[in-house]
Design a protein around this nucleic acid. Sequence first.
DNA 1: CTACTTTCGCAACGCTGTTGCCGAAGTGCA
DNA 2: TGCACTTCGGCAACAGCGTTGCGAAAGTAG
Lengths: 378, 378
Amino acid sequence: MTVSGTAGRRAHAGVNLPALRSHNAALVLDLLRGAGAEGISRLELAERTGLTPQAVSKITARLRERGLVAEAGRQASTGGKPRTVLRLVPDAGHAVGVHVDRDEARAVVVDLDGAVVGERRRPLDLGAGADAVVEAVAREAEELVGEVLGGCPPGSAESLAGVGVALPGPLDHRSGVLHRVTGFPEWDGFPLRDALTRRLGVPVVVDKDTNAAALGLAVAGEGGSFAYLHLGTGLGAGLVIGGSVHRGVRTGAGEFGHQVIQLDGPVCGCGNRGCVEALCLAAVERGEPAEAARVLGAAAANLVGLLDIELVLLGGRTVAAAPEVFVSGVSAVVAARARREGMPDGAVPVRVAPGGERGVAEGAAQLVLAPMFGRGDG
Amino acid sequence: MTVSGTAGRRAHAGVNLPALRSHNAALVLDLLRGAGAEGISRLELAERTGLTPQAVSKITARLRERGLVAEAGRQASTGGKPRTVLRLVPDAGHAVGVHVDRDEARAVVVDLDGAVVGERRRPLDLGAGADAVVEAVAREAEELVGEVLGGCPPGSAESLAGVGVALPGPLDHRSGVLHRVTGFPEWDGFPLRDALTRRLGVPVVVDKDTNAAALGLAVAGEGGSFAYLHLGTGLGAGLVIGGSVHRGVRTGAGEFGHQVIQLDGPVCGCGNRGCVEALCLAAVERGEPAEAARVLGAAAANLVGLLDIELVLLGGRTVAAAPEVFVSGVSAVVAARARREGMPDGAVPVRVAPGGERGVAEGAAQLVLAPMFGRGDG
DNA sequence: CTACTTTCGCAACGCTGTTGCCGAAGTGCA
DNA sequence: TGCACTTCGGCAACAGCGTTGCGAAAGTAG
């Protein structure tokens, strides 16, 4: 049973009736989302939540009144009245997700189901300065919303819940302030979220690209606790624990690339020696993807052992260039480690993350929707 | 706001009124425990929980009826009626904690406050076989309870809530079944919890020694999210996230010692190469504690970056032998890494874990009490 | 057409935290 | 000493939560 919650937020942890109500509503919405177009019956919702059927009826009635849920046919009878299938109303809400990368911005609009209903891309120079980038991102979002939603007023059935922005480099998720984006020190300390909120007039959430991707995967149905490892121009991780992104006390968690796995190894750009990122990318440069996979596997196995997660997902351009090599290479190291440490249930599976290049933008949109479905923080 | 909950337990996450009630009660009890002998007023409880003063009054009234809480004086007035101070009734419950090590067993009885009210030690050979060890542990617990509580019947104010057992090596916390305790392969698959429950007739909880120690530290007031690193005959970690022990999906989290930090390094007992444990202990053997600390620091920094915790606590015999060397050595590496990665708030503090040799046994006792205070699983 | 099964909403209920109110118990000043 | 004031904390009424009891609705099976 979860009413969100982590970290030093043990204060203000009291649950009153409104909190209970919104928690259960979010839980039901999350299950409805998970059921997708097939929908789910009231009785199954009751089973899955542990609530009584009557409670589910009341909760879903409220959700139907708010226009978030609708009846959608019925199941086959099992000897009595057939169960009515409920389904999320996809158009009841939308969110924009923007993936700001070093050289381009990709924006999507998703509906409540998570389906992409609009997309745009444009080149973008992260080094062009804060004002220019904020303006570019804002315009991108505005134009896309104009195209897709036709400027529906807030509160309408088709309205916009907010904008999620995912970008590389460390940042403070809670305050929405960037630290130094790797390679672009001029961003250090820039309050991106507030700047965009002022400019756009809707709620804005910012997060690391890896966290957005991980959230997107979690929403798309990946297991309860997993790590998403992204190998592109850099190496980072997004951690999902119990269905929610783990961001840590200062929202800096997932610093995976600068994990040292070779004491006194080659110097990394960060100043340390023997970081996975440096070793792994060097191997890729040398044209030795198998070695890169082995190195990545060692770091992944460290992570698996430390957190006892149930799945490792790989993504990023470098992985996409040779998926089988990376999956089998990483998988082999992880499996070998599990065998040696005597994990009884066998090793943790390693797969390529589904979703492809658009995954980060989709996940960014989910940053906005997450609280509605009870996935706000872990 | 937390009603426990992580991992794949998103099912059965519905919260009804009894669940809400027990959650809030546990929350209040936890705050009362944190206040210790000084106690805490109703209004401060209200502020800290976010509940209204009236709700706190009702909750504490129920707790007083159950004999868990009592009024204990009043605070100085601030111009009006002085606040009444509430306090946990220490004798309202007790728990036994047993620390089973390779060569000895140490048992303690703690009260609701966590204060040790009885202690025993005896030599123990973990290799003597399951029956002998179970019998020895059971008798140790029984005799200690007889001494301290005088055989109070269950349900009495002084009665025993259960027995927590902490021991080295991997095990399944949920089922209470041991995996292969390092060096004692004959334990593999032994259902220790069930055997002890049958023998003792009270609830039994088993966990890794590092998890028990970490829980004990969390209860003793250490921050919301930290790592306890134990360097003794082996090297392990207990992770606390948001006040609760993070055990992971298969309760195997905290596998810190076999984190690889030296690819293709020296062979470790586990079969891998370049594990921190092997490198660190080898340095200790060579009489180079500073190098051991540097190695440990690298691994600790990996962990800090990955999870973004707020504190690192060091413990174990090897650390106790040269505490300053380890604290300064680990601290230096962690701080250097934080500086390079541009964490703005400065580095994570590194300290020696308070509690000393008895900490694991005390933490084991807290395993039993944890659910009562809302710390059951993270 | 009848009997049976199963779903699901209405109504009454118990219990939660909340609100409004008032007595209790202090301080501070005349 | 007395009075005004502040603050705490319990009593009572209340709104809202999920739960229970029950019956109408909507199917299947014979």
